[in-house]
Design a protein around this nucleic acid. Sequence first.
DNA 1: TCCACTAATGACTTAAAAGTCATTATAAAG
DNA 2: CTTTATAATGACTTTTAAGTCATTAGTGGA
Lengths: 216, 216
Amino acid sequence: MDSALQPPPPKTRRRRKDARPAEIIDAGLAEFAEHGFAGTKLEDVARRAGIVKGTIYRYFDSKDALFEAALKARLTPLIDEVEQLVATFPGSSTELLRLAMRLAYGRMFQPDAQALMRIIISEGRRFPAITELYHRETVAKGRRMIAAIVARGVARGEFRAGAAADLPIVVMAPAIMAAVWKMTFEPFDPLDLEKFAAAHADLALDGILTRGVTAL
Amino acid sequence: MDSALQPPPPKTRRRRKDARPAEIIDAGLAEFAEHGFAGTKLEDVARRAGIVKGTIYRYFDSKDALFEAALKARLTPLIDEVEQLVATFPGSSTELLRLAMRLAYGRMFQPDAQALMRIIISEGRRFPAITELYHRETVAKGRRMIAAIVARGVARGEFRAGAAADLPIVVMAPAIMAAVWKMTFEPFDPLDLEKFAAAHADLALDGILTRGVTAL
DNA sequence: TCCACTAATGACTTAAAAGTCATTATAAAG
DNA sequence: CTTTATAATGACTTTTAAGTCATTAGTGGA
């Protein structure tokens, strides 16, 4: 059932200079996500990539080098155009926020994004340069995006000002918790992403929408 | 400046049969939190505990055994009485929710609790039994507590029913994100806990409170 | 004060995984 | 078809850290 999917590994040697690095990186990312940096064996990475350990060293100088290369290669920066979108979006801020949340959920739960996140959380402290890069290209941009959306909503009178509007990251926070939950407790206490995203939107919107009358 | 705080390690051997295990566990927990399971060297644990590697084996059979013992020893279960509290609390559900949030923030950001959390997130997949224990004693109880509070609020007409009330964990989610944030991005983008907790309460409450009139 | 028990030591063995390199075999060029 | 360059191999060395144990020395009891 497993071997039926992959083409059975060719018995003959193959020289594939330009396909190798990406394959090694894929294999490495998967192993690093599963076992952490220290727990990953290059022999396992090699096996997963269908090669032999020595071959890795033709393309990467060391385990460290592979680790950095893998993360850098698979780190997809948030496109800056998202900010453009916020500036030119025609609809209501509620629609815009919902759109942003859909984008966030659609993206954060991709296997690759999850692997990256897990690695950053687990190993980030030991690789500050990479954490900083990840933060700059992903986290900070996401934060700015939410801030822009909330600011727009407040400016147009659709969202109320207040503590949440001052620290807009709190609006997206549940999505991040969901990601962490999935990578940790999913086997024991699975989380229904659809329902969760709905609950998140429900909570966030009714917390941030202006209303005619405020109770209490 | 470092050596001024600790009493300088005694040059003479000391026999301290009953103090050792806890000291080794403390040292181990710190090292595991910092370097992960595979990345932790028992020699470093020993140095941190002011002993020598061999001594660890007098008290623990293996690295694995120390790891499990350390986590189990420092895992403080949420007390079941919290549910009692919910049942007998005299004030409004808003007050009760705020109280629960204060408890959660007060507890989750203790160094020990943070270390535990970081280890569970990083290593949990490889130690399912411990993850399950952590989930049962901490996560599930916390979840039940929030659910009880929200249910009470809905029953008393203070909180509105809806998606968020159906999945009450979303109400606490931002606190968990804050914990993850602190353990990962604090050096690059520090998070002001006071402000964050306020923003969280602001968002959550205004999302969950019933109101006379609902806009849009 | 001395003895006996055992906590603690540190030098040791073992295991495992990182990293190296001479050899082999593939593919592309002539 | 042959040659040449080099990607790939796998057996190798080195390094690192887990785990062992005979020896040493604190400590509580006689």
